[in-house]
Every structure is written in C-alpha cells, then in structure tokens.
Amino acid sequence: MMFTRRTLLASGACSVAMPALAQVVATLGSGDEQISILSDGGFEMPLSTLARAVPVADISAQAGPSNPFRTPLNITCLRRGKDVILFDCGAGANFLPGSGRLQESLRTAGIEPEAVTHVLFTHLHPDHFWGALDEFDSPLFPNARWLAAAREIDFWTSAKVYDHLPADRHAFAAGAQRIAKNLGDRLERAEAGREWLPGIAAVETAGHTPGHVSFVLSVGGTSVMVLGDALTHPQISFAHPDWQPASDQDAELAAATRRRLLDELGRTGMQVIGYHLPGATGRVERQGTAYRFVGT
C-alpha cells in the first residue's frame, strides 16, 4: 500500500498543517544529566477528533474555539554522561507539512545524529516512528539502539494488522511495516514493566495503541514521566479523561489508562512531559472531580 501525505489528508485523520520552527522547547536538569525537549514541528486536527460522540460545541467549550486546533510534537532527549537518548523520533519527511523538524532541532541543541545512542519508542504511530529513517531509507541515527514494546511491534508488523484497523489507518500500518523492515534486527523488542535502560523504566499505558508505554526516569533527583500519547490534550485529557479521542485504538482501555495515570500523577506531583502538550512539561493537579495540567 502506498502511503503519502495526500493519503493521510484524504483519510480525515489530520487537517492542513501549520508551519513550525525547529527549536528547543524546554530543558530540565543540568550538567551531565539534562533533558532537552526538541520540537518536531506540529500539525492541525479538527476539534471533532478530540472526542467521539461529543458535540463540537461542547468540545469547543473546553478546548477553545480554534477549529482546527494545532497540536505540537515534543521529543524528549536525555543526555546522560556519554548517552544521548531520544524518546520517539518524530514524523520524518513523509507525514504532514509542518512536522519532521527533529533534525533541525537537534542541530539547534548541538546534537549530531551520530551522537544518538538510543531511541526508545512509546508507540509506533507515524508522528513518533516515521522519523527513524533518513531520505535514503537508512536509520537516521546510525549508532543508536532502537527499542519498542514487543506487543507494539507484533501488532504493527502482523500481516493481519489491517483487519484490526479502520481504512483510514491502513496507511499508518503500511508506514510502520516499511520502517520496521528497514530497521530490521536493529529494532529491539522490550517488555513493559521493566527497565529498558538503567534508571529508565517502561510503564504500560496501553489503549492509544495496543503496546503503548510511557517512561519513568530521574533527572537531577526529580522523577519525570515521558507520557507519549497517554495524555494528549492540555484541557480535554485532564478534565474529561472518559471522552474518547478518535486517535485511541481501544477507547475504553485508553480512558481507563488516563484515569489511572491522572490519579497517580495528581497524588505524587511527578513532573510530566507530554508529546502533544503545549510547552511539554508540567504537573497534574486535581480540580474538583477531575484534573488539570499545570505547565512549568
């Protein structure tokens, strides 16, 4: 199956993109242990994608009147001693205009592709996985180890994956299979609930995709969770965790995951990094019977 920007736009999954500049969005820590949040750009999506079966007027009352709304792409980069560890690697050149800016942001941060030692994937959706290859279909980070959850790899590389996806997501599977094939044995299988690297644990946060994971690590003595797409919108995901975004594959499981995460994060005050949250970093606070995202 061919997958192109036209295919994705026609699917209704995304709208016309807005341009975005390469940048370092935020930093945490210092010295030999530092996180830089790198922009991969961003794109626009209709408000209706934020919640199935919820009137757009109700969504707008929570998310704001802008329709479509813009979602950023924030990639976490941990520099720890000699290691340069990316959590996801962006959309690359074949997704949507306005995305695929990671290489520019890496240069802004003073990081060469050859310096990247590890890429840990939260999941294998296009805006997280398709940036793995360069324009010659070779791994963009030639010296890196690439790790993803075994359940996630199994789902996207199965010949039967199309039976479990709506037609407008078939391009996602075709892209994932092409990239996994080109990575070959470099794409390592790992399990949720374990450390994937010393001090970096993968937490099962399935629902958005079957093998979605988030990561817990410590930087400068501060615990941080890299959320991936477990919480994706700065108002809706926190105030209405039971609303079902169109991007969630298993909507009921994803909602249960959000509720569990919000309870935990609200109780512990742990710092979070959101792939699609403006400003990227913040904390979860209880607000009435729900929660809110407080940026830092």
Rank of each mutant, 00 (worst) to 15 (best):
P55W: 06
L21V: 14
G288C: 11
L197Q: 10
L261H: 01
F141L: 09
P234C: 04
M18F: 04
T232C: 11
A150K: 09
E33C: 12
L261I: 02
A190I: 09
R194W: 08
A22K: 13
E152P: 04
V25S: 11
P113Y: 10
E152I: 03
S39V: 13
T49M: 12
L227S: 12
T122K: 02
D229P: 07
P55I: 08
P166V: 13
A246F: 13
A206P: 01
G193C: 11
G199D: 12
R186P: 13
T122M: 08
V216C: 07
S60L: 02
V226E: 15
I273R: 02
H170M: 10
R258P: 03
H240N: 12
S30A: 15
R189E: 08
V56E: 15
L217S: 06
A26I: 01
L253M: 12
V226R: 02
R258L: 05
T296N: 12
I37T: 04
F95R: 01
Q34H: 10
P166A: 14
D263S: 14
F141R: 02
M1H: 06
T76W: 03
Q34W: 04
Q244A: 15
G269H: 06
G274C: 06
A251V: 15
M2Y: 08
P234A: 05
G288Q: 10
A173G: 13
G184Q: 11
N94M: 06
P278D: 15
L106V: 09
L120C: 12
L147A: 10
P210R: 03
D40L: 13
E112L: 15
A51H: 01
A57K: 14
V16F: 10
H118F: 06
I35S: 04
L183S: 07
H170D: 09
G175F: 04
H164S: 15
D83I: 03
S15N: 11
P166L: 12
D263A: 13
Y291G: 00
R178K: 15
T108A: 15
P55R: 06
G269D: 13
Q271M: 15
S39K: 07
S39N: 08
E252C: 03
I35P: 00
L47P: 06
F43N: 05
